[in-house]
């Protein structure tokens, strides 16, 4: 490795070769810095679309770390639709699930599970109120 250190004292005949070497060293250092920055750069966050399961799940909305995150709308099996908040790819926060059978559910979700109170709506009427996904006895 000593030859590398000694490179600055080279004969003029090989000086040009060493200039090329310095050029490539500079490129390599630059490359390392770019790669280091890229490797730790957070992935895209913002509005986008994403399709899963061969198109059966079709999403339009905010995306972070390659997952649904924030406000968005997910079409399921080309018939049902969930519109609302997502965290880490799952229903999380407030959202509305609209079934192709004509009913819809409005409520809170956490990591995909129904939590808190929610309303089952059919023909513009609230037909039931649910708590943690269970029917509340009237």
């Amino acid at each position: 490795m000593a030859s590398v250190t000694r490179s600055l004292k080279m004969k003029p005949a090989v000086a040009r070769h060493w200039q090329t070497r310095h050029f490539f060293e500079g490129i390599a250092v630059l490359l390392i810095i770019v790669l280091a920055t890229f490797s730790l750069w957070p992935s895209y966050v913002g509005h986008s679309t994403k399709s899963l399961d061969g198109g059966k799940l079709d999403y339009r909305g905010r995306i972070a770390a390659e997952k649904f995150d924030g406000q968005g709308s997910l079409r399921i099996n080309n018939q049902d639709r969930y519109t609302g908040q997502f965290v880490d790819g799952r229903f999380s926060g407030t959202g509305t699930f609209v079934s192709h059978q004509g009913w819809q559910y409005r409520g809170e979700f956490k990591a995909g599970k129904m939590v808190g109170t929610g309303k089952m709506i059919e023909n513009h009427q609230i037909i039931a109120t649910l708590k943690n996904g269970e029917l509340i006895e009237k």
């Binding site: 799940l57 790819g89 799952r90 079934s99 979700f109």
Partner: peptide, 15 residues
Amino acid sequence: WVNGIYQDVTQIQTA
């Protein structure tokens, strides 16, 4: 992830 989403949808339908 995908199976999780389907399970969540089924849960709403079951409710």
